[in-house]
Structures are given as C-alpha cells and as structure tokens.
Design a protein around this nucleic acid. Structure first.
Length: 561
RNA sequence: UGGGGCGUCGGCAAGUGGAAAGCCACCGGGUUUUGGUCCCGGCAUUCGCAGGUUCGAAUCCUGCCGCCCCAGCCA
C-alpha cells in the first residue's frame, strides 16, 4: 500500500516557531524536555505537555529529556519519581538516556548564585517572609528596597556561604536577585532565589540545607541541557522576563527560549494536583488509580489505551486560549480506537432468564460468532446455546412504548448469531416482579436469518445459563455532575453521587473466562470493557471503559424517559 | 487603578488584507444480525463591541468591553 500524499502535518504556533528556527539556522536540531515536579501523580492534563514535547522532538529528529524539577524537598518523594516514569512510558514515550534531575545541578546553580553576588546582582536579605511581602508592594503600588539590598558583595558571599553551611535557621535569610523593586512585573521585584530548608532531599539527602527556587533552577537547567525550546503553560508567561534575565546575567552554556501554551482542561473532571489529592484524602475515590480519576494511572486501570489519549491531544491542538475540552471528545477518541481494535463478546449485565420451551431439555449446541466485524482477520469463535438463557432486563418490556423494538409479549426478535425467538409468557413472582420469560424459537432461523425472508426489528445479545461465567462489572459515569466543577462553590459539592455502579452476578459468555487482563473487549451493545486489577482466578471484575453511542437512550430522553 | 496574556459556531480550532477549514456535540436520512460501525446531508452572510483605513478587513489602526495569570522563602 502506498500513497503520494504526505501525512497531514499537525501544526500550531509552537511548531511554526520551531520550523522557522530550524529553517533560519538558529538551531541545528531541537531539544525539548518534560519537567515534572515529583510531588504527585501525572494526570491527563500532563499528557498535553508530554505529547507536545516528545512529539516535537520526534517530528524534528531531536531529543526530549525527562527532567525532574526537584527543587523543593518538602513536597517531593521517590514514589512519584517512579510513577511518573511508568506513566510516561505507558503513554508511549521514551527519553532514552536523557533522564535528568534539577538536583544534579545544585552545585552548578550554587556557583551561579555566587557569580550573581560578585557581579552585584544578588544579595542576602534578613527580612522575614512577612516583611518581604510588605516590601514587595502590590499590583498597583511599587515595592520598596529592603534595608539589606545594598550589602557589599563580600558580606553577601560570606552570608550565603554560612547559609549553605547551616548556620541559620529556616526562614532566617534568603538570597534574592537584585533586579527592580518598582517593576510592573512583580516577578522582577527582587525574587527570592535561595531559601533555607533543613530538610532531607529524596536524592541529595542532607547534602544541602539551602535550595534554589523554581525561577533560579528552571531556565538554567534548560541551558545546561542545551534545551532549544522550553515549552510550559500559560501561568509562567510572567516569569519569562526573569527566565531571560538569568540566562543573560549568568555564564550559562546556551540560551533556551521559553514558549507558553494553554494547559488542557476537560469538562466534568478536575485536573489539579491539589483537587485530586483532596478527592483521594477525603475518600471520594478509592485512590490515585481509581478508574474514575483523570490520573494516567486511573485511566490506565480503567482500560483506556494510551493511543486514545495521544489521539485526543492531537485533536485538541495547541494554542494560547484558555479552554475546556468536551469530555465527549475523549470518549469519541476511545470509541474510535476500540471500535477498530476490540474483539466483541456477549455479556449480560442485568440478567433476565428466558426459557425456550420448544428447545430440547438438556440439549446444547455451539454457534459461530464473529470476533470483530471491523477486522476480518480477527476470525470467529463458538458460543454455546441452550434451553435456558439470560438476556438483558432492559431488552424486554411488558408494555412497550412507541419505538421500542426489543422483546415484548407476542413479539419476535433475533438472538444474535442464534435464532429468532418469540415471547409467549411472562412469569412474575408474588411482588409482581418479572422473573422469567417463556419463549419459543424457530429452528429454521439458525444463525440468525429466516429462510422465508421475514424480518425482525431487533437483535439481542444473550448468554447460555448453563455455560455462563459470573463476574462483577463496574460501571462508571462522569466524576462530576457539572461541566466545570467548583464554578460556584466547593468543587466537591459537584461530585456525581452515581459515578460508580457495581453490578454483581453478571453473566459472561464462557470465552471471557480466561480473558487476558489488560485487553479491551466490546460487550456487544453495551460498551467497551477491560478486566480490572482486582480480578482474580474465578472472580472476574470488569471495568466499563466507555459506553457505545446510545441512540435509544437519546430517543427515550426525547420521549421524556 | 500596575504588568502579562486571550477573545472565530454549543465545545475545541484553522485562518495573519482577496469568497469563514476541520473535529466533537447536535439534527435529519440511508445501510446494518450491535438502536454500534459506516455512508450521505444540515449546522458562523459572520469572526467580543464601536468607529476608522482600504476597491476589498476575522486579518491593519483607534477606542471600549469581557475573561485568565502575577503580590509563595510552591512549581
């Protein structure tokens, strides 16, 4: 198979800039980086940055580094360093040898701090945090210089060395860059670049008790790694002048360019570590990998293939506008992929027993079922059929409304890959609850076609009662009831109380018994599912990844339920 | 009332002076042994608003309005 068309190049303002830089010879190649702080789990919002950085590197034959921005030991843990690597790999990206840590540069960064002092561009400030805030001024009033602003380089150097040596307590002094206390950009009002923290660092242990801030570490780390384009989110726009200031005033080995883009937001969920942490801590979900969570670990556990996330990111694009992507677009990406890849199976989640009264007692037979109508190579399998079967309760109505085409008293429908059946009798218990249906089948319709050409308006899925495998199936809905949680009030108040529904006693066709964990299946007419990590031998648990598009549900809604 | 950004269909998003791409959602219709898939069609006479420049403006100019970010020794 060949084509003359070149694949449509995804383009956005960042790729445009990079293309120009390459064309003009400003750079020979590209080096990007994904720089998470190891203080939490990655979520789908991060995948935009990951796909962008690794994607651009791949498209331009460059490299993308994975760098942990571990400058604040209070919040960081090795556990996160592990999980982040697992998640990035799962998403489908590889940093090769290029794994770095900002903490690897602590000594170099410290040297640059002394360099700044010697040039009269930094000073040790004895003001307290509160005083610094007061002196900083406000959004509309300029700041005032600290009384320590004009200390001599010699004294500053001595003080910084003593800070490093551990002579002072946390918060007693800080090192500040001497820039402009009257700047309209508050980030330039002598930002703190080193603080004292007598805290062990996950990687450097007790080697340091002073740590550089993000502003003093990030651009310089980029420069050390010869990053050409440092892509970050919009909230860092105001930090760019500072980023550039350090690159200009320090003897760094290269001059990276920071470019900002809008972060990914998705409706009906939240994407901030703070909020996600609260969901876990307050027990609204069962952990970071709860299948309802937008964390990569949660999405993975739910059964979503990583390719679906990459496709979503491609479709969303990259721009500078604050936006909220419709969750439906994500669902579409999942369905689009799984429709093509997932094998079909039959499973009944809410069983209603039917007895085929004219089918011989004790008999059974095997019927051929297609594995994936979208993929002829997927072949077919045999499914057992017998006198007693289960169908979905929703597929029968004693008193059907207009447009309900499924089973009803006196009505004939098709059992997929099996026979036409007609419902003759409805059996109820003493409460009036339907407990069983008595039907007859037409032996001439074996396989699902009537030789006389008669049609039927519905095809139902089913499972033979004698052969069924039992399983628990977990159904998920949006975590939040509103598109933008917390738009008015606490986001927790917008939680969807019905985001999880557990169905036990579900009946699966026997081929699902030994199903391989990690693989996705379509339960015909119901949606895409995957085994949960809670599955055990003989105690299967499936997660619903996403439903199928459901036109009948829409009709029902239009009819007023 | 400081500085930095952003405003194109319900949601994303192209377009950068010469006839408003595409995708999702939604609404029809066809095919169908999944009310799935697939196919066909519809969906911005108008680009936050108001002026101006121009033969011609979403694109240029001016003014206004709205939204987001910044006052951590977080990132």
């Amino acid at each position: 198979m060949s084509t003359n068309e070149t694949p449509a190049e995804s383009t956005d303002f960042i790729r445009d800039i990079i293309r120009e830089d390459l064309a003009s010879g400003k750079h020979d190649g590209t080096v990007t980086r994904f720089p998470p702080e190891p203080n939490g789990y990655l979520h789908i919002g991060h995948s935009k940055s990951i796909c962008l950085n690794f994607g651009i590197a791949a498209e331009t034959g460059g490299r993308c580094h994975l760098r942990f921005d571990d400058t604040n030991p209070i919040k960081e843990e090795m556990e996160y360093i592990e999980s982040i690597q697992t998640d990035v790999r799962w998403l489908g990206f590889d940093w090769g040898e290029d794994l770095y840590y900002a903490s690897d540069y602590f000594e170099t960064l410290y040297g640059w701090a002394e360099e700044l002092i010697e040039a009269g561009n930094a000073y040790v400030d004895d003001l307290s945090a509160d005083e610094i805030r007061e002196y900083r001024g406000t959004l509309t009033e300029p700041g005032r210089p600290s009384p320590y602003r004009d200390r001599e380089p010699g004294e500053n150097l001595d003080l910084l060395r003593r800070m490093r040596a551990g002579e002072f307590a946390d918060g007693e002094r800080v090192l500040r860059a001497k820039i402009d206390m009257a700047s309209g950009n508050i980030n330039l009002r002598d930002p703190v670049i080193y603080r004292i923290m007598h805290v062990d660092h996950p990687r450097t242990g007790d080697a340091w008790c002073i740590y550089p801030t993000y502003d003093f570490a990030h651009g310089q780390s980029d420069a050390i790694e010869h990053i050409t384009h440092s892509l970050c989110t919009l909230e860092f726009e105001g930090h760019r002048p500072l980023y550039d200031w350090f690159v200009e005033h320090l003897s760094v080995p290269s001059a990276p360019r920071q470019i900002e883009f809008a972060r990914l937001n998705i409706s009906s969920t939240v994407l901030s570590k703070r909020k996600l942490l609260r969901l876990v801590k307050e027990g609204h979900v069962d952990g970071w990998d709860d299948p309802r969570m937008p964390t990569l670990s949660g999405i993975r556990r739910r059964g979503v293939p990583p390719e679906a996330i990459r496709n979503l990111i491609d479709r969303v694009g990259v721009a500078k506008r604050d936006s909220v992507v419709d969750y439906a677009l994500f669902e579409h990406c999942i369905r689009e992929l799984l429709n093509k890849d997932a094998e079909r199976r039959m499973a009944v989640l809410n069983p209603l027993k039917i007895v085929i009264t004219n089918y011989p007692e004790g008999a059974s037979e095997e019927l051929a079922a297609v594995n994936n109508p979208e993929d002829p190579d997927a072949g077919s399998r045999m499914v057992p059929f017998g006198r007693e079967l289960y169908i979905e309760r929703d597929d029968f109505m004693e008193d059907p409304p207009k447009k309900f085409f499924r089973l009803a008293p006196g009505r004939e429908v098709r059992l997929r890959y099996a026979y036409f059946i007609t419902c003759n009798e409805v059996i109820k218990d003493s409460d009036g609850e339907i407990v069983e249906l008595r039907c007859t089948y037409d032996p001439a319709t074996k396989g699902g076609d009537a030789p006389d050409g008669r049609k039927v308006k519905a095809t139902l899925h089913w499972v033979s009662a004698a052969h069924a495998v039992e399983a628990e199936v977990r159904l998920y809905d949006h975590l939040f009831e509103v598109e933008v949680p917390g738009a008015d009030g606490d986001f927790v108040d917008d939680l969807n109380p019905n985001s999880l529904e557990i169905r036990s006693g579900c009946k699966l066709e026997p081929s699902l018994g030994p199903f391989v964990p990690g693989e996705q299946v379509q339960f015909e007419r119901l949606g895409y599912f995957a085994p949960d990590t809670d599955s055990k031998e003989g105690a299967l648990v499936f997660n619903r990844i996403v439903t199928l598009r459901d036109t009948w549900a829409r009709i029902r809604k239009q009819q007023g339920r």
